[in-house]
Nucleic acid binder design. Structure first.
Lengths: 105, 105
DNA sequence: AGAGAAGTCAAGTAGTTATTTAACTATTTC
DNA sequence: GAAATAGTTAAATAACTACTTGACTTCTCT
């Protein structure tokens, strides 16, 4: 194996892990319930769990499940104040993620 | 039910179906194999089934499966010339889809 | 016409995930 | 401190989907 091939393999491995990471972000937008949550946050800024659950017409338990997925992918930030948890969108991540598909890298 | 409520319900139904439609587009980007295909198309423009399958290191049967999902969501256009099928990205759809998450509607 | 190439289809398997329900842990408020 | 509020967790079910394999169609070229 030449030095070029080694470098190429390494670069491909990096690119592959990037792709998998990005696929996870898209996966967190791929469910209608979660996308609805993201759209609510996009329109209204910071919201609490109960506010989101009410407006999205889902149970608090289901919101908790989906918000964990959104937070884990990095798409939403969360903070807890007393017994209330607040969420807001990470719009920068959304922008960079889409830029990678539209502009040649 | 007042006229306002009727309109509101109708608008919500439209919004919901829009959300489901968009979720499908994101779902087609949510799989690492498909996202890899989209990234190849983004970098190289129009490609044939075999070219994609070779570069993505997947079987032609698997490419066929994934490309159907990509075409159905509208993310890729296809055309067939003889026995060869060519694919290219619908970059406009990608742009409008992301705009809906970043800018207030 | 026959051989090979390019793509499509269908069935089966294995793994993943969205949703519900119920129980449980904080945190306020009276 | 008791009751209500806000959120979290776990288990169970049901639905979905990525991938493999093998057979099949359609097209091209000699």
């Amino acid at each position: 194996m030449t030095s070029h091939e080694i470098k190429s393999t390494f670069r491909d491995a990096i690119a592959k892990s990037d792709t998998e990471q990005r696929a996870k972000i898209f996966a967190s937008l791929a469910d209608p319930t979660r996308l609805g949550i993201v759209e609510l946050l996009s329109l209204q800024g910071e919201m609490s769990s109960s506010e989101i659950a009410n407006q999205a017409e889902i149970s608090l338990a289901l919101l908790c499940h989906h918000s964990k997925i959104l937070a884990e992918s990095g798409l939403v930030y969360t903070r807890k104040d007393g017994q209330t948890r607040y969420y807001r969108l990470n719009q920068e991540l959304i922008k960079t993620c889409f830029a990678s598909l539209v502009e040649p890298e």
